[in-house]
Design a protein around this nucleic acid. Structure first.
Lengths: 108, 108
DNA sequence: TCTACATTTCGCTAAATATCGAAATATAGT
DNA sequence: ACTATATTTCGATATTTAGCGAAATGTAGA
């Protein structure tokens, strides 16, 4: 039950739900996510820690940056992501567009 | 996005997750749920209110009691319940057995 | 090794929330 | 209409949590 609780708790926060859905577009670094969510770096970092502990995401080093990505190797996460794909929401659409355009060389 | 957030927030609490899963067994009244969860009546009532506001459950009068039941008319709820069916957990199994045996005439 | 910079950790505050018992409400059955 | 009882609401408290800025950490590249 604990893994389910962690996932639901993680997704029960507006910022974290937005982060997970924008990672459907592509893996991103803390800087890029921060720019889209609009909170401080430390806050984003904390959200990412919680998402990681719920096993929703992973990270990978790439040059100077740490890329955060959805953990699609987890079956439960896959099922949840499948549900999230149906979300129809203006903020989510905007986030999506910003994620596509996100360019770390201009932000970080 | 709001409906998703409400559902995830509602399910991100241990007691509420247990309630939802035990309602998969059968509709139950506050008394019966209280007996299984083990908190006060008012706490259970509050959890049920939150689950109702997330559109996860409905209620129906039956004699002296109010039966709470899963709202399977909601598509999103259906998808979520489908995920929850896979939970393998001792507390959940125990709850399930207690729900089967629950007899309001001895409790309420 | 030094520097620049991406990220995390820490300490704090404000807001949200789970829980309780007591009081209020509603209603079924006499 | 009265009574018993099922349920909700209220007010209070303790815990959790989201957010911040500053300081610490880690590391890529010069």
């Amino acid at each position: 039950m604990k893994n389910y609780l962690k996932i639901f708790k993680a997704l029960g926060d507006r910022s974290r739900l937005r982060i997970v859905i924008m990672l459907l577009v592509k893996p991103m670094c803390v800087c890029e996510i921060r720019e889209i969510i609009g909170t401080s770096m430390s806050t984003v970092s904390n959200h990412l820690r919680i998402l990681k502990e719920a096993d929703l995401i992973n990270f990978q080093k790439e040059e100077k940056y740490i890329n955060y990505e959805l953990n699609i190797t987890n079956n439960l996460v896959q099922e949840v992501l499948n549900i999230l794909k149906d979300i129809d929401d203006k903020i989510i659409t905007d986030d999506h567009q910003k994620a596509v355009k996100a360019d770390r060389s201009n932000l970080c």
